[in-house]
């Protein structure tokens, strides 16, 4: 599903955050990537989600090499991957209601009428309903917002889901609920998962295999 080979990426070419890293996520596999904070996990997740162009290395997604990143990636390729970010506050446009937030990818791809029911079903699945969906991000808690962000990431039925420290800011019960939603989705759609985090216990229980992030020299 996803093949990263010899990826070097970062924000200044002289001091890349990720150096020469390779990893593979097979179809339907759940891979956990474990590492301390600041080691480049999120940067790698952004590369894998086609949101950040690496300085070197190749990304192969669904059997085809990736040539463009961000807006240069064709829409169909970008939406193959769903991303849930670490901080829901920053990952949600503060002007959208939660309902609009969840349905945003459907509007962006012009499939709103087709996906409206799915958006409602997903909101229900992540445990959001009624009044909450009419509120805006500043009026809900981090956990509720992260639930909406997960629903948004699953809306377009991605074949690979990347969870970048999805549960780092959440309490145990919300973590359990969100992981259950992800697992239900994966069972239903046979989707792959790349879970990035620093919680060894959680990743061991959640993923088929767990890799340590190689420490940069």
């Amino acid at each position: 599903m996803l093949e990263l080979s010899h990826i070097t990426a970062g924000y200044t070419p002289r001091a890349p955050v990720v150096r020469d890293l390779s990893l593979t996520v097979a179809d339907g596999e759940a891979l956990g990537l474990l590492g301390p904070s600041g080691c480049g996990k999120s940067t790698l997740a952004r590369v894998a989600a086609l949101l950040h162009r690496p300085y070197a290395g190749t990304v192969v997604l669904a059997g085809e090499p990736v040539r463009g990143f961000r807006f240069r990636a064709p829409r169909a390729r970008r939406t193959l991957v769903g991303v849930v970010f670490q901080q829901p506050r920053l990952a949600a446009d503060p002007r959208l209601t939660l309902r609009a937030l969840i349905a945003d990818p459907a509007r962006a791809t012009g499939r709103f009428t087709e996906l409206a029911d799915r958006a409602d079903a997903l909101a229900d699945a992540v445990g959001l309903g009624g009044d909450l969906l009419r509120r805006r991000p500043p009026e809900v808690s981090d956990g509720q917002l992260q639930r909406a962000c997960l629903a948004r990431a699953l809306l377009l039925r991605p074949r690979l889901l990347i969870c970048d420290e999805m549960t780092a800011m959440l309490d145990a019960s919300t973590t359990a609920a969100l992981v259950a939603v992800v697992e239900d989705y994966r069972r239903e759609h046979d989707a792959a998962l790349l879970a990035v985090g620093h919680d060894r216990v959680l990743l061991n229980r959640w993923c088929d295999s767990v890799r340590e992030f190689p420490t940069t020299p």
Binding site: A49, F71, A92, R95
Partner: peptide, 26 residues
């Protein structure tokens, strides 16, 4: 530079849509 723009790109939004829906209203 905020992650919500990343999220919109990942959700298939075009350059124009990101500007019109997320940047200009802000």
């Amino acid at each position: 530079a905020r992650p919500f723009v990343d999220a919109a790109i990942s959700g298939g939004a075009s350059r124009l849509r990101v500007a019109a829906r997320h940047l200009v209203p802000g």
